[in-house]
Computed example of a mutant assay.
Amino acid sequence: MVTEAEKFAKEDKEKRDAIDTKNQVDSILYQTEKKLKELEDKVPGPVKEKVEAKVKELKNAISGGSTQAIKDAMTALNQEFMQLGQSIYS
Results as ranks from 00 to 15, higher is better:
M1D: 07
V2S: 12
T3K: 11
E4H: 08
E6N: 15
E6I: 13
E6R: 14
F8Q: 09
F8A: 01
F8I: 14
F8W: 12
A9I: 07
K10S: 06
E11P: 00
E11I: 00
D12V: 09
D12N: 09
K13E: 08
K13L: 11
K15S: 02
R16V: 01
A18N: 00
D20V: 11
T21I: 01
T21G: 02
K22W: 06
Q24S: 13
V25G: 04
V25M: 01
V25R: 01
D26N: 13
I28M: 03
I28R: 02
L29T: 02
Y30M: 10
Q31F: 09
Q31Y: 07
T32N: 01
T32H: 01
T32P: 02
T32E: 02
E33W: 00
E33T: 09
E33A: 04
K34Y: 00
K35D: 11
L36V: 01
L36W: 00
L36D: 00
L39K: 05
L39A: 06
E40N: 08
E40L: 00
E40R: 02
E40M: 00
E40V: 07
D41H: 10
D41T: 08
K42C: 07
V43C: 05
V43T: 10
V43H: 03
P44M: 01
P44H: 04
V47E: 02
K48C: 05
K50N: 08
K50R: 12
A53C: 03
A53P: 03
A53Q: 05
K56W: 00
K56A: 13
K56M: 04
K56I: 03
K56S: 09
E57A: 12
L58D: 04
K59C: 09
K59T: 05
K59W: 03
N60G: 03
A61W: 03
A61P: 04
S63P: 06
S63G: 07
G64T: 09
G64C: 10
G65A: 07
G65I: 11
G65T: 08
S66N: 15
S66R: 12
S66E: 12
T67C: 04
T67N: 12
T67I: 15
T67L: 05
A69S: 15
A69D: 14
K71I: 13
K71L: 15
K71R: 14
D72P: 05
A73E: 02
A73Y: 03
A73Q: 03
M74S: 13
M74A: 12
T75R: 14
A76I: 05
A76R: 06
A76S: 13
Q79A: 15
Q79D: 12
E80Q: 14
E80H: 11
E80F: 07
F81E: 04
M82D: 14
M82G: 08
M82L: 14
G85E: 11
G85I: 10
G85K: 13
G85F: 14
Q86D: 12
Q86V: 10
Q86G: 11
S87R: 08
S87C: 06
I88H: 12
I88D: 09
